[in-house]
């Protein structure tokens, strides 16, 4: 079973407004409302490949119930700690090629709720073969949480895919997650290195790997991935570098790449299905691809360009 950890899931409301104007009345049709959060979307992608997957994290109130129901409607098994606060709602406005996003910070997690989650996590580890931990950390939780969760998994010889940013990322890298994909949407600096060139991204990857990680991934261009592993670095990208939306793209990449690694694919093939999954999510605007067939069919259109 693959376990996905989403500490700060959401309900994503996407409004398509072709001529969105700030400071004016904008009218729109009903928004698209779906569950969001990196681990949530990665879990749905893994299920498309028929992987057994359990999603965990925190859920609360009506929005939390909607997230749980959405996951189960996609055949993903849920095992979340229940909280008093409300699972957050994120708002996305799509205006042709522009995208405006407002993310709530998320509910405050109380100490007893964190304790319940840790019980759930430890029990789930007894059946997990891989753990994905991704996304922001809600208020009330220490920045060391991913480091602590990664250590617990490592103690049971379970590999971890980590995708987060800032201090949480830098601390968790010390626990040697198997795969690290820094989230560089807001901060374009990792471990003191500014990620303004491929050369610097490889430098940052090597620094991360010096703590024990085996694979480091960075977003590259509109839809592409720079994959760095020991003695190897390449970029996987589609022939046509376009996307309708960026929502769920990185999450789908995480889910599909994990599927490839868990099933012993070569790094190049895992990267190909990952980029295909990201592109399908971005083109469909529903956070995730619709089928594994959609992902498999696009692989021939993915280019692999070695950079080392």
């Amino acid at each position: 079973m693959i376990l996905t950890v989403t500490l700060n899931p959401s309900i994503d409301k996407t409004f398509e407004i072709p001529k969105y104007s700030i400071n004016k009345l904008n009218r729109t049709d009903m928004p698209q409302i779906i569950a969001g959060g990196k681990g949530i979307n990665a879990a749905i992608v893994l299920k498309l490949f028929k992987e057994e997957v359990v999603a965990t994290g925190f859920l609360g109130d009506l929005t939390g119930k909607k997230v749980g129901e959405y996951l189960r409607s996609k055949d993903v098994t849920t095992n979340f700690a229940q909280i008093e606060g409300s699972t957050r709602t994120n708002y996305i406005v799509l205006d042709r090629r522009k995208q405006t996003q407002i993310n709530e910070r998320g509910p405050k997690i109380e100490p007893d709720e964190l304790e319940s989650f840790m019980d759930i996590y430890e029990r789930a580890l007894s059946h997990a073969k891989f753990v994905i931990m991704a996304g922001s950390i809600p208020p009330g939780i220490d920045v060391d949480i991913y480091k602590s969760l990664a250590r617990k998994a490592k103690h049971k010889n379970i590999n971890v895919f980590l995708n987060t940013s800032g201090e949480a990322l830098e601390r968790a890298v010390e626990a040697a997650p198997y795969i690290v994909k820094p989230d560089i949407r807001v901060r374009e600096k990792v471990l003191g290195i500014t990620l303004d060139s491929i050369k610097n991204k490889i430098r940052a990857a090597n620094k991360i790997m010096s703590d024990g990680a085996q694979i480091v991934m960075f977003s590259e261009g509109i839809i592409g991935e720079l994959i760095v592993s020991k003695g190897k670095a390449f970029i996987a990208k589609p022939e046509k570098d376009t996307l309708r939306s960026r929502i769920g793209v990185q999450d789908s990449i995480i889910g599909a790449f994990t599927y490839g690694v868990v099933n012993n694919m070569s790094l190049e093939n895992a990267a190909k299905i990952a980029v295909c999954a990201g592109k399908a999510a971005g083109d469909r605007m529903i956070n995730t691809p619709e089928s594994s067939k959609e992902i498999e069919m696009c692989q021939k259109n993915i280019l692999i360009e070695e950079v080392i």
Partner: peptide
């Protein structure tokens, strides 16, 4: 497909 559960050691308050 939901695994919401308790352990025998959990308190009744929980």
């Amino acid at each position: 497909r939901d695994l919401t559960s308790l352990s025998p050691e959990s308190t009744l308050k929980k």
